[in-house]
């Protein structure tokens, strides 16, 4: 039986550079899995292949048994994959509520009309932006833009949420708010793949981790074990520290 998200022998080549070589792992239903690795290790490339922004050179990705690799990003989104972006990407000519409405209207359940407005408000309230739907996104602070982006991802009612360094760049107090938000998603049963550099957040949120380096998985297993793995320490700190 296949898992919730199953990635098998995934590979991506850009010209002469192999960014991802033979990566396989899975995410179970309701699980929050961390995807770690130093910069340039291929994490975001993997995320981009899951969400359809990039086509895999080889390998397969299935979500709840349905093959989603090689579909267009909008089809994958409607299959239930939602994501945030490494650098926040708000839609600047839309209001905060409209940003969320986009996902409601075109996500899995295609909400439109007054109930979509209500749902948008509900999602915004969940991330802590209740009552601010009418504002211009350009006026939001950085963390509020991140919140809005999370609300937008949640609005499509995804089966899998991809968070690409969603916690990066937050102050310590904002970070705690962010971790609490993801934890609430976790207790609501959301499956999450979390690309993250902040180890405290990874420890707090993920029972299981996948670590990549130079396009390959170098460690895979329970978070505490993986973070103590000498190979992982070497990859992060350079070989001299191992």
């Amino acid at each position: 039986m296949s898992s919730h998200l199953q990635i098998t022998h995934l590979r991506k080549r850009f010209g002469g550079l192999v960014a991802v070589k033979d990566v396989s792992f899975d995410v179970a239903d309701g699980e929050v899995v961390g995807l770690l690795g130093p910069n340039g290790s291929g994490k975001t490339t993997v995320l981009n292949m899951i969400s359809g922004a990039l086509l895999p050179t080889a390998g397969e990705i299935t979500l709840r048994g349905v093959r989603i690799s090689r579909l267009r990003p909008d089809r994958i989104a409607r299959h239930g994959v939602a994501r945030t972006f490494q650098l926040v990407r708000p839609l600047p000519s839309l209001t905060v509520a409209e940003n969320v409405l986009v996902s409601l209207a075109f996500g899995r359940f295609k909400h439109w009309g007054p109930d979509a407005r209500d749902l948008a408000e509900e999602k915004l309230a969940f991330v802590g932006l209740g009552g601010r739907g009418g504002e211009n996104v350009a006026n939001l602070t950085y963390i509020d833009q991140k919140r809005m982006e999370l609300a937008r991802a949640l609005a499509s009612e995804p089966a899998l949420l991809l968070l690409d360094e969603w916690l990066a760049g937050l102050t310590p107090s904002e970070l705690q708010i962010g971790i609490d938000l993801v934890r609430r998603l976790q207790s609501a049963g959301m499956s999450v793949l979390l690309v993250e550099h902040i180890m405290d957040a990874v420890r707090a949120l993920c029972a299981r981790c996948v670590v990549m380096n130079a396009g390959e998985i170098i460690a895979h297993g329970p978070t505490e074990t993986v973070l103590k793995d000498p190979g992982v320490v070497a990859a992060y700190l350079g070989d001299g520290h191992a």
Partner: peptide
Amino acid sequence: RAVGDDEVVAAHAGI
């Protein structure tokens, strides 16, 4: 309007 702002975001939202 979403497409005009950012095609990538629009596509990932299901458009």
